[in-house]
């Protein structure tokens, strides 16, 4: 049965006085994958380390697993599986020994350990790699071993700290899909830290967007994208243009909701400043006649300097509270 994690009034102040995390309450439901998304320095890693037990919250904060207070428990007593950006595989052990480490520490019988290691190698598609040395593996293989090692002990919660960031783009995408399949199969409560919004949207049952030590918004990928609670969320997740419309004031609009047509057919005309061909679509930067910038996208490229008519549907304007 998956674990429910609750944080109450958890804040983190570093010894030098900087506030990494403002007091926050958070509940992570059993079996869900919560993604902590935000720019560097937003507090997402600090929050993960609080849950892991690698850092303690400030006085008054409380962390509970399934209602049991674990605030005072060190990481080794929390049964968390951790996957690090730098893999953190033990160079003095081969692949199988790395995966077996947690099982040996808790004293599993050799036969049971061997069986579990074999199962983990199968699960992460690493069969036949058991005897390999760590420095003989590619980045993707290393991260799979790290995942197998963390999952082997059947942790109550799986914590992933930017696990795909060190990989190149193609590999990152394929491993992301593999990870999604694995998390779905394991049904373990997991917390995934990333600064990559595509990763967050692909993996998160819910996404918590953090900025300057606060959770700006928490919700499904659709919520975050279509109904951003704050201006920061609107601008951090996906692309957005700020436009001052006569009689309406400032509006926020996503590029895919900017409709382009022949000059004179829309609400107003604009000039194409830059057109970047991206294959499946072209990203357009428009310059309005009063000098504002507006992002749009089209199926077919439009030459820079062309005049176009712009139609905006107010139904798609984003309306963050703050």
């Amino acid at each position: 049965m998956a674990t429910r994690i609750t944080l109450e009034r958890c804040a983190k102040t570093f010894p030098d006085g900087t506030r990494a995390l403002e007091p926050l309450d958070l509940a992570i439901e059993p079996g869900e994958c919560l993604v902590l998304l935000g720019p560097s320095g937003c507090g997402k890693t600090t929050l993960l380390r609080l849950i892991a037990g690698l850092a303690a919250p400030d006085e008054g904060g409380r962390i509970a697993f399934d209602g049991t207070d674990v605030t005072a428990r060190p990481i080794e007593a929390r049964r968390v599986g951790m996957v690090f950006q730098s893999y953190a595989l033990f160079p003095n052990m081969n692949v199988a020994q790395n995966i077996a480490y947690g099982l040996k520490i808790r004293g599993d019988a050799p036969a049971a350990t061997a069986a579990r290691v074999a199962e983990m190698l199968r699960l992460t598609q690493l069969e036949g790699f058991g005897e390999r040395r760590i420095d003989e593996l590619s980045g993707g293989q290393k991260q799979r071993v790290a995942l197998a090692r963390a999952v082997a002990i059947a942790p109550s919660v799986l914590l992933l700290d930017e696990p795909l960031t060190a990989l190149d783009a193609k590999l990152r995408e394929s491993l992301r899909i593999e990870l999604k399949r694995l998390l779905g199969a394991l049904k373990v409560t997991s917390v995934f830290v990333t600064h990559d919004q595509a990763e967050a949207m692909a993996l998160g049952d819910r996404i918590a967007v953090l900025s300057r030590g606060r959770i700006e918004q928490i919700g499904s990928a659709r919520d975050i994208y279509a109904r951003p609670a704050t201006r920061f969320v609107a601008e951090f997740v996906g692309q957005v243009s700020r436009l001052n419309l006569p009689g309406r004031g400032e509006v926020l609009v996503r590029p895919e909701h900017v409709e382009l047509g022949a000059p004179g057919t829309g609400s107003f005309d604009a000039t194409v400043a830059v057109c970047t061909f991206l294959g499946n679509l072209s990203a357009i930067e428009l310059c309005t006649d009063d000098g504002q910038t507006l992002l749009a996208e089209t199926r077919v490229p439009v030459a820079a300097g062309s005049r176009v008519g712009v139609t905006l549907d107010p139904a798609y304007f984003l309306e963050p509270r703050s």
Binding site: E76, A77, M82, A88, Y101, G102, I105, R106, L159
Partner: peptide
């Protein structure tokens, strides 16, 4: 990258003494 290796070992249940003899000394 010893600090991260030790954190990984701790997450897998190893206390300080176990970490010292299974991770620090061999490496």
């Amino acid at each position: 990258n010893l600090p991260v290796l030790e954190e990984a070992a701790a997450s897998l249940g190893a206390g300080f003494v176990q970490r010292f003899f299974t991770i620090v000394v061999p490496n």
